[in-house]
Design a protein around this nucleic acid. Structure first.
Lengths: 237, 237
DNA sequence: CTCGCAAAAATCGTATGCAATATTTTTCGT
DNA sequence: ACGAAAAATATTGCATACGATTTTTGCGAG
């Protein structure tokens, strides 16, 4: 397990909370799939890995558990979340409720600076799609999520922004788990279209496009139950 | 500070997480206004009060800080949140986005058992409105929130349910801070109407009523900024 | 060879101790 | 008497220690 090394050390803002920094690195590792769902994250291991005591490692894991990226079982430890198809559906149902509204809110607050940031974001996204290999694919999922987070930040509601951070992180996990690899790149075009609409102040259109976009992302998943019933099915055959 | 005593001991499920139990009691105390916004919650004090070490008290406070009910400052401690008018607006903007959708989802899943639970809930709510005194008013705010939480649980999306728990808790705080005392009891009628619509499977009407309901709650608040500018205004006069 | 059981190891939950930082009180000079 | 510097006090951040619980390992019986 080499998490701390792979991510950029980034000259930690020293007096910033250490637990928070560890949480951020672990979160990146989880949504990037460097840590597979189900992986055990023992307090001791995390602690030695980041060179802190179990106390602060534990705090970081507790934060991730609140975000739903980690599941903790009493006296057993913390594990990278392994969202069920039902959970996956709920994540996207939540996004369908929230994100069209965020798009509308963002439309009313777009500044040229915001537009420029979006353009840069979309460029980077396009670059990752052009590349090949599983590493680029990880980056692509991440960049795609960042588009939605950027939009949430423009909307200017910090509560919704935090909700979106959680939903995007969980979505990345879900996509990594249930995504059919090939198709998702069409999302880039949709992002472009959404930006276009919002840039022109067409909030309603941006909102509608966003709703379709979320539908498309979910449609690209294979959410048939597998582990429990599928196993039984396979054996009873 | 006598929080632990005022709430019912409730034969703590012993092997249940203690930090979580403390969090629940503190949360109740905060939304009930037994702990005023800005009150300092020192780890040591909470610890001795609930007869646990600072470690677990700290964990409880960390949870509350995630929910936005407590604000923690490094090396200074934890304080009951004192939401600004802007924060209050964001809470209600979030609810406007989420709750109409929850109403629609709930409409499709209402069983007779659910309806019965709602009827009981509304009865209790009505009883608190009939009573007088500040204590009844606290209970009224709480019961009003419970209606929305019950609806969220019927909707069957655990993620949205958790979001709603946070939003309702923060709303209680906001109402206690900025509420104009007299008027809020009309919310009870609106709850009744919403239930009626959903009971009849009229999801759209229930959703629309919910949106108005939230608007009404927010309209009953006095969200003019006071502390900063108001002070200056008072002195420059 | 497999199964079950007991001992050992690993891991968690929690308390406590120490250093660092904030807050309050005291003291001293003007 | 007032204000500022300094000491005393309190509180947080973090590490470590120890009992409790779970998991693994080792070994003997069937």
């Amino acid at each position: 397990m080499n998490i701390a090394d792979q991510t950029i050390p980034a000259i930690e803002a020293a007096n910033e909370d250490r637990a928070q920094a560890i949480r951020d690195q672990l979160r990146d590792a989880i949504v990037d799939r460097r840590l597979a769902p189900g992986t055990k994250l023992s307090e001791g291991e995390v602690g030695t890995l980041f060179d802190v005591s179990r106390t602060v490692a534990r705090a970081a894991l507790q934060m991730l558990s609140f975000e739903g990226l980690v599941r903790t079982e009493r006296n057993r430890g913390a594990f990278v979340a392994n969202p069920s198809p039902e959970e996956a559906r709920q994540v996207f149902a939540s996004r369908r409720l929230i994100e069209p509204g965020i798009a509308i809110a963002a439309a009313g607050r777009m500044t040229p600076a915001h537009v420029a940031a979006f353009k840069a974001q979309l460029d980077e996204e396009g670059r990752f799609i052009a590349e090949r290999g599983p590493n680029a694919r990880r980056s692509e999922i991440k960049a795609s999520g960042d588009f939605h987070l950027l939009l949430a930040s423009v909307a200017g509601n910090v509560i919704l922004q935090r909700f979106m951070e959680e939903l995007v992180a969980r979505s990345s996990l879900v996509i990594a788990l249930y995504g059919r690899s090939g198709i998702s790149s069409c999302g880039h075009n949709e992002h472009t279209q959404i930006l276009e609409a919002l840039e022109n102040g067409n909030a309603e259109r941006g909102s509608a496009l966003m709703l379709h976009h979320i539908d498309h992302i979910e449609a690209d998943l294979d959410l048939r139950v597998r582990s429990g019933p599928a196993l039984r099915q396979a054996l009873e055959f």
